[in-house]
Write a protein that binds this DNA or RNA. Structure first.
Lengths: 146, 146
DNA sequence: GCTAGCTATATAGCATACTATGTTTCGAGA
DNA sequence: TCTCGAAACATAGTATGCTATATAGCTAGC
């Protein structure tokens, strides 16, 4: 019988949910949620990027990013201006209100990450990051059929 | 500037999405999706459990399990019968059609897990599981505020 | 310079996850 | 026994993620 604690897939999913929950609870009062983090990181220096570039930076699918950006626009965190170089695109950047929250976001991420790995030695922390990078690479490559 | 590849939270979320996507693609033809895996594991030997027990086994919140069970009932994978010991509960078990799929589910999980960790040495695989268990434990303990 | 195909984004529909809250039943103590 | 709080489940609302598909603009080749 398979033990869920020994299943990399199950444990990774569990850890990811706990990470997201910790971030959401910390940033709820700021009106920010976990799915928005990649956008804050990509635009945190005042950059203006297309939706495609943001989608690539977050490693999610395009409709997911479109929905996240819609919510962030609704909440006044980002604004879009037409891309002069391409009529299909808009250049997306944080609003002043969004930029004001970058530090809070960074602090929350650092705090949650630090708490998460606090039980690991420095060597174990490095090994964990290396292992999960290897896993991501492997999973990105496998075909749909066994 | 923070590098997303060095953020345990980001990488864990990414890996979890890739795990789920790999499972969903393999099991789509069987009419099964990743959120149902814990139910299959808990009931795969013909057990009959309450929703509360399933919620605990999957480590998710109660309304999430309720929705998953609704979909599985709709799809003919599980059935509920009144719990003789408690009028508030039902005992949930896999239908014959659900039990028939247990092997397919097990195979898919084993295949995805094996592919995911194929780039790690046996020692690294063990270390990864130990590390992520430590991380889950740490994240389950942290309070909402830093 | 026209068209045919490609690219960027939008939209629809669904699954999985959360919080907050309502409803029903159980159980313990007055 | 009766009530009141707790427990089990249901429901509502929202966010994040996916696939599939539509639409609009760009671009290469003729």
């Amino acid at each position: 019988m398979l033990d869920r604690f020994q299943s990399p897939g199950y444990m990774t999913n569990w850890a990811a949910r706990l990470f997201a929950r910790a971030i959401d609870r910390r940033l709820k009062s700021a009106g920010i949620s976990s799915g928005q983090l990649p956008v804050f990181f990509a635009l945190g220096q005042g950059e203006a990027l297309t939706q495609k570039a943001l989608t690539h930076a977050a490693a999610i699918e395009q409709p997911t990013m479109a929905a996240t950006l819609s919510r962030m626009e609704r909440d006044g965190l980002i604004c879009r201006r037409p891309d002069p170089a391409d009529g299909r695109s808009a250049l997306i950047s944080l609003t002043p209100a969004g930029l004001e929250k970058v530090e809070v976001v960074r602090t929350a991420i650092a705090s949650v990450n630090a708490a998460a790995i606090s039980g690991l030695s420095p060597e174990e922390q490095t090994a964990y990051l290396a292992a999960i990078q290897t896993i991501v690479t492997a999973l990105a490559k496998i075909p749909d059929e066994p």
